[in-house]
Design a binder for these strands. Structure first.
Length: 1029
RNA sequence: GCGCGAGUGGCGGAAUGGCAGACGCGCUGGUCUUAGGAAUCAGUGCCCUGAUAAGGCGUGCGGGUUCGAAUCCCGCCUCGCGCACCA
C-alpha cells in the first residue's frame, strides 16, 4: 500500500527547505562532474532568457535559440517560459539517459539485473511506427504520449513497466526513394529512423531505448526468417486443432496412421511425390493464385495496398488480377480459433466485429448436383455448390458457375438444347453455347473487380447449355455462367433459389427463370410469386412445398429444416454440412528489394520444391545490388511477368551449399521474392522483450514474465496496445495468426499477442485554400466573424488530415521551441478523450501552458526562483481538494481518461493558487500526480522541493477516504423533476428529516403554489423530488 | 444497400438514470502596465428584465418508459467508419 503522503512527518522550517533546494543542485556534481550543473544554476539565477542559444552545455541549445515567442523585458526571471521549459527538458532527458532511468530489467537473460524483478509488471505498447521521410507532425505522437503517461503512472503504482519503441522500417517508400535518388534504401531508412528518434526523445517518452529494434536490423530479421521457417515447417492438425512440426506429419505417413492422397504406402512414393504431399500441408506454401499484379510498380500487392478504384495506393498505377505462383500463409486453418478467441480479448467491440466479418464464418452445406448427360453423350460429372440455406433446396430452379470455374469447359454441349430461351444466349444471341460462354468469360476476365461492381448490380450471364439434377426431387435445372458468383468463395458454384435470395431473384427476373416458394412468407405477400418485387429471405418462417418420398421439411422453421435436410443429404451421400469462411489465405511474397529475404532455396535439379535453409545459415542477409529498383514495365501491360530485383543478384542467387541433409554440397537457387512489410510487425512485441538475445527470438522465462497468461482463463499478451483503427483487420489478424502458430509449437506461453487493445483517435487540422484552390499557410489565416482571410483575401476552410502539402502541419519540434514538450503532452492529453479524433488548435494550447505555469508559480517564486511552499499543515478544505483530486485522478488514469484527469489537477492547482502559501505536502502530491503527464517539470519541481534523484519511481498518492466525505452536502430539491431549491444538509441526514426540510423549503412552496403533494421521492442526502397532486 | 459508432454553449469537451455545460479555448470587464498578442482577478448556455430575485427555454428531430432522461426504448434526420453480389 502506497501511503507516503500520510507517512510524511516533521515538516521542516522554510529555511531548511531552501537549504535542501540548494543542496540538491550541488549533489549531482559529485556523482557526475560532466553535468556542469553549477554553471547552469548560475545561469538560471540570471534568468532563463540569457541562456537561450548561449550554451553548448545543453544538448539542444540550438533548438532553444529558435524560440519564436521572446518574453517581454519585464517578465520575472524565474517564470516558467518556453526557454526555461526547453532547458529543464533537455537537462532531465540527459539525466534519464545517463542514469538509465527507464531501462527496464528482465527476469533473466541479457537484460536481467542482480536484483529480482517486481512481481507486478505492465507491458504497454504503441503500434509499430514506420519512419517516413517527412518526419513527425504533432498528430503522430498522440498515442505515444498516452502510453507514456499511462506507463509512467503504472510505474508509480510500483509495477515493472516495459515501454519501448522500434521501427517497422522495411517497405516500399524507401525503395521508391532509392529509385528516384539512387540512395540505398538502408541509408534512407537509417536517416529517417535517426530523425524519428530525435523527435520522439524530445517529447520525453520513458522508453527503454535498448529495446528499440528495427525490422531492418539483421539481428532482428534473422528471427523473422526463423519464425518463417517455423511456419514453413509446420502443418495444421485439424483433429488436435493446432499446428504441429512437419516431422510429426511425416511420422504419421511413415507409420501408415495417415493415408496418402492416392492411398499408396508412403514408402512407395518417390522423393518428389512425398515433397508434393508434404507441401500440401505446410502453413507456408507456394501456390498459383489470382493476385493483385501492378506492372507500374513491378510487384504484386496486398489487397490493402490497392485503392477502391483498383489502382495502387502508391503511384496510382492500374492493378490487374493475375494468376501467379506466390507464397501463401495458411491463415484459413486458424479461422475458427481466430474467431473464437476474440471473445477472450479486451478489445473495442467494433474492432472485434470487423475481424468477425472479415473472417466471415458461415455455416451451411455442400451439395452435389449431378450433371445431366449431355446430348453428345459425354459422361456426366457433378457440380458441388455451397449454400447457407440447404433448407431451400426444393426451391432451386437453376444453377450458376463462376466464370473462372474449370467445370464450365467440360459441360458445354455443342448446340443449344431445346427450350433455350433467347436471352439465355447472351446479348449477341450466339449460335452455340460454346461461343456464348467463351465470349462471356473473356468479357469477365477483361474486367477488373471494380469494373464488375461499378456496372451496378445489373445481373449478366449466359446459359451453358447444360442441365444438372436437383438431388432432392430429380428435377433438371439449367446451369448458367454469371459473374455474380465469385470463384474465390465457397465452391465457386451455387444453386439458385430465386424466391428466397435477392441476387438469384434479380437474375431470374432478368433471364425469365421460374421461381418456387419453399419458405412461407405468411400473409404479408401475394400467393403468386410473379407479383413479388423482392425475394423473401427471412429466417423466421416455415418451410413449405419441400417434401419428397423420403424427407419432408414442411412446417419446420428454417433452423430445423436445415438440420433435417443436411441429415438426409449426408445419409444419401450427396451433401454434407460444412462451414465456409470469407477469409482467404494470405499472399506473402513481394517482388521487392527492401524486405526480408526468404530463407528458402531450390535444388537446381528439382526447382518446384522449396527447401528450408537450416537454422545455422541464418541470417540470410540481403545482398548489396547495384540496381534495387523492380524492373519497370508498361503500367498498362497486364501480361508482363514480375521480375524481383533479387533475381538480378546472380552471385547471391546461385549458390553451392551443404544443407546437412546428407546429400553433401549441391547447387541451389535462392528464392528471390521478399517478405511483405507485415512480417516484422507480426512479432516485434516479442523482440522488445529480449532484443539482444542471440540464442532465441525471445527468452522463455522473459516471455512468460511479460506476456504469459495470468490465470487459466487469460490469453496473455501485451497488457495495453494503443494504435489507430486502420490496422483493425490486417496487422492485428496477421500477428494473431503468427502468435498462435508460435504458441502451438510451444515457443510462447501466451495464446494471443494483445490482451487489451485501445484505438486512439486522430489529431486533425483545418486547411485553407484560396480562390485558385491553392493551399495557403494555415498559421497565417485569420478569422473575422466566421470568415477566413489570408493576406486580405478570403479563403475556404477544409477539415481533415495534417500534412506538409496542406500547409497546416505543425511539427513537435517547433511546438517544443514555442512551448516545451510538457505543454505538448498536457495539451494533447487534455484535448478530449483519447479514442476521439479532434481538431488541432494552436491558440488553445495557451491553456495547457498556463496550467503548467501556474503549477510552477504555486511552488517557485517567479522573482527569486526560490521554493515558496510552506510547512504548515494544510487546512481541511485544502485536504479535501487534494484527496478528491487524488481519487479522481487515479480513477481517470486507470481508465485512460487523461482529459478529465488533467481537469482534476487543474481544479486542485486553481485551489492552491488562492492560498497565501501552498502547503509543502500538497505541493509534493501535486508534483507527483503531474509527473506522468508533465514529467520534466515534475522532476525539476521535485528536485527543488529537496528530493534526490528522479520522481519517476515515487509512489502515486493514495486518497484518504476521510477527506472524501464533506460534512455538508448540497441536496437538490425538485418539484415535478425540475430544480426548485437547494439545501445544505449533513451527509447522514435521515430520509424523513430531509423530506420535511424539502417540503418546507421556500422553493418547493413557491413551486407548489398551493397544490397538494402526491408523492415525495427521497434519495438522501443528495436529492428530493416532490411530485405535486 | 448492410453493419457499427457519434450528434451537448461561439469552439474542444464534462456529466452514462438524479444540480446539464466540469476543465480548457474564445469573448466581456477590472488590476498591473509607456504598451499588451504577457500575467492576474471576475464574469460568461439562450430568452425575459434597467439590473437583481423569481421565471421561461435548452443536449439533432418526433414519440415512449420513469417521480425524474443528454443518459434507457422505438422511429426519423445528419455526419463519420467498415464491408460491399461472400451464396
Amino acid at each position: 500500500m502506497v501511503t507516503w503522503i500520510r507517512a510524511r512527518s516533521t515538516p521542516a522550517p522554510y529555511r531548511a527547505a531552501l537549504r535542501a533546494e540548494e543542496s540538491r543542485f550541488r549533489a549531482p556534481q559529485r556523482g557526475d562532474p560532466s553535468c556542469a550543473r553549477g554553471f547552469r544554476i548560475f545561469e538560471l539565477r540570471n534568468g532563463p532568457r540569457k541562456r537561450a542559444g548561449s550554451t553548448g552545455q545543453t544538448p539542444r541549445g540550438d533548438l532553444m535559440s529558435e524560440s519564436t515567442r521572446p518574453p517581454a523585458s519585464d517578465e520575472p526571471a524565474f517564470r516558467y517560459t518556453a526557454a526555461m521549459a526547453g532547458e529543464i527538458e533537455a537537462r532531465w532527458q540527459a539525466y534519464w539517459a545517463r542514469h538509465g532511468t527507464f531501462e527496464t530489467p528482465n527476469p533473466s537473460g541479457p537484460l536481467a539485473t542482480d536484483t529480482p524483478v517486481p512481481g507486478e509488471k505492465y507491458y504497454v505498447l504503441d503500434m509499430f511506427p514506420y519512419p517516413s521521410g517527412s518526419g513527425l507532425h504533432v498528430g503522430h505522437p498522440l498515442g505515444f504520449i498516452a502510453t507514456d503517461v499511462f506507463g509512467r503512472y503504472q510505474r508509480m503504482l510500483g509495477r515493472n513497466v516495459l515501454h519501448a519503441m522500434g521501427f517497422d522500417a522495411f517497405g516500399l517508400p524507401a525503395e521508391q526513394y532509392a529509385v528516384q535518388t539512387g540512395t540505398h534504401p538502408r541509408v534512407t531508412t537509417e536517416k529517417n529512423i535517426e530523425r524519428y528518434r530525435a523527435q520522439i526523445s524530445r517529447i520525453g517518452l520513458a522508453h527503454d531505448k535498448r529495446r528499440g529494434v528495427a525490422t531492418t536490423d539483421v539481428g532482428f530479421y534473422r528471427w523473422t526468417q526463423w519464425i518463417f521457417l517455423q511456419i514453413f515447417n509446420s502443418w495444421y492438425d485439424g483433429e488436435a486443432r493446432r499446428a504441429r512440426p512437419i516431422g510429426e506429419l511425416v511420422a504419421q505417413f511413415e507409420a501408415g496412421t495417415r493415408q496418402t492422397p492416392d492411398g499408396r504406402a508412403w514408402s512407395r512414393l518417390t522423393a518428389a511425390e512425398r515433397a508434393d504431399v508434404i507441401d500440401g500441408y505446410r502453413l507456408a506454401y507456394i501456390s498459383e493464385a489470382p493476385v493483385n499484379w501492378c506492372p507500374g510498380l513491378g510487384t504484386v500487392l496486398a489487397n490493402e495496398e490497392v485503392t477502391a478504384d483498383g489502382r495502387s495506393e502508391r503511384g496510382n498505377y492500374p492493378v490487374f488480377k493475375r494468376s501467379l505462383r506466390q507464397w501463401m500463409m495458411r491463415i484459413t486453418a486458424y479461422a475458427d480459433r481466430l474467431l473464437e478467441d476474440l471473445d477472450r480479448l479486451d478489445w473495442p467491440e467494433p474492432i472485434k466485429l470487423m475481424q468477425r466479418n472479415w473472417i466471415g464464418r458461415s455455416e451451411g452445406a455442400r451439395v452435389r448436383f449431378a450433371i445431366d448427360a449431355a446430348d453428345d453423350g459425354r459422361s456426366p460429372g457433378e457440380i458441388e455448390v455451397f449454400t447457407t440455406r440447404p433448407d431451400t433446396l426444393f426451391g432451386a430452379t437453376y444453377m450458376v458457375l463462376a466464370p473462372e470455374h474449370p467445370l464450365v469447359d467440360q459441360i458445354v454441349p455443342a448446340a443449344w438444347p431445346a427450350g433455350t430461351r433467347e436471352v439465355w444466349r447472351g446479348p449477341e444471341r450466339h449460335s452455340t453455347p460454346g461461343e456464348a460462354v467463351a465470349a462471356y468469360r473473356a468479357q469477365a476476365a477483361a474486367k477488373t473487380e471494380v469494373e464488375r461492381q461499378s456496372e451496378g448490380r445489373q445481373k449478366t450471364g449466359v446459359f451453358t447449355g447444360a442441365y444438372a439434377v436437383n438431388p432432392v426431387d430429380g428435377e433438371r435445372v439449367p446451369v448458367f455462367v454469371a459473374d455474380y458468383v465469385l470463384w474465390g468463395y465457397g465452391t465457386g458454384a451455387i444453386m439458385a433459389v430465386p424466391a428466397h435470395d435477392q441476387r438469384d431473384f434479380e437474375f431470374a427476373r432478368a433471364f425469365d427463370l421460374p421461381m418456387r416458394i419453399v419458405v412461407s412468407p405468411g400473409a404479408g405477400r401475394p400467393a403468386d410469386v410473379d407479383e413479388w418485387v423482392e425475394a423473401f429471405d427471412s429466417y423466421d418462417a416455415q418451410a413449405v412445398n419441400s417434401a419428397n418420398a423420403e424427407v419432408s421439411l414442411d412446417g419446420l422453421v428454417v433452423v430445423e429444416a436445415k438440420k433435417r435436410i443436411i441429415a438426409w443429404l449426408e445419409e444419401k451421400g450427396t451433401g454434407t454440412g460444412t462451414i465456409t469462411y470469407r477469409l482467404r489465405d494470405w499472399l506473402f511474397s513481394r517482388q521487392r528489394y527492401w524486405g526480408e529475404p526468404f530463407p528458402i532455396v531450390y535444388d537446381v535439379e528439382d526447382p518446384t520444391h522449396a527447401i528450408a535453409l537450416p537454422d545455422r545459415m541464418l541470417p540470410l542477409e540481403l545482398p548489396e545490388i547495384a540496381d534495387y529498383a523492380p524492373q519497370a514495365f508498361d503500367p498498362d501491360d497486364a501480361t508482363c511477368e514480375p521480375a524481383p530485383p533479387l533475381a538480378r543478384a546472380n552471385d547471391w542467387v546461385e549458390v553451392e551449399l551443404d544443407l546437412g541433409d546428407g546429400r553433401g554440397v549441391r547447387r541451389y537457387r535462392r528464392e528471390t521474392n521478399t517478405m511483405p512489410q507485415w512480417a516484422g510487425s507480426c512479432w516485434y512485441p516479442l523482440r522488445y522483450l529480449d532484443p539482444t538475445n542471440e540464442e532465441r527470438f525471445v527468452g522463455e522465462q522473459v516471455e512468460r514474465y511479460w506476456m504469459g497468461p495470468r490465470d487459466a482463463e487469460d490469453v496473455g499478451g501485451v497488457d495495453l496496445y494503443v494504435g489507430g483503427a486502420e490496422h483493425a483487420v490486417l496487422h492485428l489478424l496477421y500477428s494473431r495468426f503468427w502468435h498462435k502458430v508460435l504458441y502451438d509449437l510451444g515457443h510462447v506461453s501466451s495464446a494471443e499477442p494483445f490482451r487489451k487493445l485501445f484505438n486512439q483517435g486522430y489529431i486533425q487540422a483545418y486547411a485553407y485554400t484560396d480562390e485558385r484552390g491553392v493551399y495557403v499557410p494555415a498559421e497565417q489565416v485569420e478569422e473575422v466573424d466566421g470568415v477566413y482571410y489570408f493576406e486580405g483575401g478570403k479563403v475556404n476552410r477544409e477539415y481533415g488530415k495534417m500534412g506538409k502539402s496542406l500547409k497546416n502541419s505543425v511539427t513537435p519540434d517547433e511546438f517544443c521551441d514555442n512551448y516545451g514538450a510538457d505543454t505538448l503532452r498536457v495539451y494533447e492529453m487534455s484535448m478530449g478523450p483519447l479514442e476521439v479524433s479532434r481538431p488541432w488548435e494552436t491558440k488553445a494550447v495557451a491553456g495547457s501552458f498556463r496550467f503548467l505555469q501556474r503549477v510552477w508559480r504555486n511552488i517557485v517564486d517567479e522573482e527569486s526562483g526560490r521554493v515558496r511552499v510552506g510547512d504548515a499543515e494544510p487546512d481541511l478544505e485544502t485536504l479535501r481538494a487534494l484527496h478528491v483530486a487524488i481519487a479522481g485522478t487515479r480513477e481517470d488514469l486507470n481508465n485512460l481518461r487523461f482529459n478529465t484527469a488533467i481537469a482534476k489537477l487543474i481544479v486542485l492547482n486553481n485551489h492552491l493558487t488562492k492560498l497565501p502559501v501552498v502547503p509543502r505536502s500538497v505541493a509534493e502530491a501535486l508534483v507527483v500526480m503531474v509527473a506522468p503527464i508533465a514529467p520534466h517539470m515534475a522532476e525539476e519541481l521535485w528536485a527543488k522541493l529537496g528530493h534526490e534523484g528522479t520522481v519517476a519511481y515515487t509512489p502515486f498518492p493514495v486518497a484518504d477516504p476521510q477527506y472524501l466525505v464533506a460534512d455538508e452536502v448540497t441536496c437538490v430539491v425538485q418539484v415535478a423533476g425540475k430544480l426548485r431549491d437547494k439545501l445544505q444538509v449533513p451527509p447522514d441526514i435521515s430520509e424523513d428529516a430531509l423530506r420535511e426540510l424539502a417540503l418546507a423549503s421556500e422553493g418547493v412552496q413557491r413551486a407548489l403554489d398551493g397544490r397538494g403533494v402526491r408523492t415525495v421521492i427521497v434519495r438522501a442526502p443528495k436529492l428530493v423530488n416532490v411530485v405535486p397532486a
